[in-house]
Nucleic acid binder design. Structure first.
Lengths: 183, 183
DNA sequence: ACTAAAGTAGAACCGTGGTTCAATCTTCGA
DNA sequence: TCGAAGATTGAACCACGGTTCTACTTTAGT
């Protein structure tokens, strides 16, 4: 699946619409025609990128659900995993931007997974609110703002920077959870 | 400047690369050729959208600087203005996504303004940390996470939803500031 | 070794879309 | 009234890029 990684790399660098199949092919050390031997087209390639990233997020969600520690810690760990998914796995970044670039059929499948993820995170947040350890005037909005703080990392993080992905992920996660914490 | 608004609307709906000059023209009730009478090209149109939004953000920053209340309140008001800029002024949303779509010359001018804004916000955050009312392990990262929570709103907000832009802006701002607050 | 399936390549097709152009219509001050 | 500057149009140009096609090469099972 090195092809998917190459595609995700180009998607991330240039954006979906601006990314050319020729770019992706050469980035994957394939000829253009050969690339079409593996994928029906550009849409499908993006779909696989997004699908893999969504699966990874859902895995992290499942782990956070099994966990029995306080919800603050569980959400923090989820947040770290979320950011690492965006920064380490190149597919992740491509996945989170440009969800609407897909044709309806494929788009629906990704949106479904993404919604499942968001609902799961929201459930954790509301559980925390009920338990008293978290606070959120509007859990839906708070959850989206929480995820926004995480997602935006893909926009500004540069690997050449001084901090490792893990350091960045932990700092961002600390901030994101603090916004929900009950003082 | 109704043309800029129309352009921003299409940019936001379809994304820069996918937005066609024909779409923009018809959305602005202009013929394609006439659109080129007012703007040299697609790049310049995006540039004006981003430039206006950046100016609006800088205005909000200036207001937050003049303010003499506690930094938490000033940052909250800045956050509300920031989100409202994204949601109310259609140009705003177009501005924040796809910064890299511009040719180097124009891009540099936008990036300069955006950096000035981010530095200004970061200065407010570090001032709050020094004063003891705020807390941030890494002010640069915290500021970016803060702005991320705000910026991501443009991705998920739908005007048809139950809440007004102002309500959403205030909820998001509450969350974003809480992430910086010293408990 | 043989052959069928999969891998690989390069060129060509063709629609889309940014841009340009020449021509016509409005506006408005002199 | 006249004419120049700006507004407006529709069509045409042309490059870029997604996709397809056909032919050649490698692999793998019998």
């Amino acid at each position: 699946m090195a092809i998917i990684s190459a595609g995700a790399r180009v998607f991330r660098a240039r954006g979906f619409a601006a990314a050319g199949m020729r770019d992706i092919a050469s980035s994957a050390d394939l000829s253009l025609g050969n690339l079409y031997h593996y994928f029906r087209g550009k849409d499908e390639l993006l779909f696989f990128c997004q699908d893999r990233a969504a699966d990874r997020l859902l895995e992290a969600l499942a782990a956070a659900r099994k966990d029995r520690r306080p919800l603050r810690l569980r959400l923090r760990e989820l947040a770290v995993a979320h950011v690492l998914c965006l920064l380490d796995e190149v597919e992740g970044s491509a996945a989170h931007l440009e969800v609407d670039a897909l044709p309806p059929r494929l788009r629906a499948r990704i949106v479904a997974k993404r919604d499942r993820y968001e609902r799961g995170v929201r459930a954790l947040v509301t559980a925390g609110v009920r338990a008293g350890s978290l606070r959120a005037a509007d859990p839906t909005i708070a959850t989206r703002a929480f995820l926004g703080a995480l997602n935006w990392t893909a926009h500004w993080f540069r690997p050449e920077g001084p901090q490792s992905t893990r350091q960045v992920a932990e700092h961002v996660a600390d901030y994101a959870v603090a916004g929900l914490a009950n003082p």
